[in-house]
Design a protein around this nucleic acid. Sequence first.
DNA 1: GATATGTGTCAGGTTTCTTTGACAGGTCCG
DNA 2: CGGACCTGTCAAAGAAACCTGACACATATC
Lengths: 113, 113
Amino acid sequence: MQEVPTGDELLKVLGALGNPHRMRIVGALLEGRNYVSRLARELGIGRPLLHMHLQRLEAAGLVVGTLELSESGKSMKYFELTPFCFALTPQSVATAALTLPEEERTTVKESAK
Amino acid sequence: MQEVPTGDELLKVLGALGNPHRMRIVGALLEGRNYVSRLARELGIGRPLLHMHLQRLEAAGLVVGTLELSESGKSMKYFELTPFCFALTPQSVATAALTLPEEERTTVKESAK
DNA sequence: GATATGTGTCAGGTTTCTTTGACAGGTCCG
DNA sequence: CGGACCTGTCAAAGAAACCTGACACATATC
């Protein structure tokens, strides 16, 4: 049930969820999939802004968007939630941190002055 | 075991953990409490910077710091981890989102201004 | 006194994130 | 055609986060 993300993945997830608008977006999508323009109206924010937020959430893998054609022929981009599940504990964070860029231990090549 | 934070609390936590340096700080503190200057040396970052990061972590309730006096009389600020535990799922995020500021619908009640 | 340790803070520059308004395209309907 | 929807992108302003160097204060040791 628990996902074990790399440091980079976890950073994306935390960065994506650590924003009031994006938290509300998740809340809104929990009630069902929705398309961008309608979601923007319901949340009371502009489309360009929502578009950016959705992109961030999608980049983190928390939502997925599919461009569909309504019966009338208009294209609608529907977004829905991913059943993500992360546990945040000192251990899980520390584990993820190990996979980060580099800790640069004493391995500092340069002739230490 | 699971903590049920308000939207504001969760925002602080996510904002605190969503940073490579702070993730590494958590990882470093998992091996035991430590004081600022030493921690800065081990992580290879400046004290002012670490100080800021620790403040952010402490504000989120993920670490606690105590100013102690070493035997020699110097003051040392020791930080240690809090046994935090958060679950990140669509439901938990949506629940937290409900407690956020306000969605400012068209019904702006200002009777009790 | 000079040095090395520890504490903290502050101003500033840099970077990143957030937000908005304007623009491009498309389909459908009266 | 004009309007009402839908999609997307861009540039630029504004706000917030991040980082660094310098400063001030302590104590202990040489």
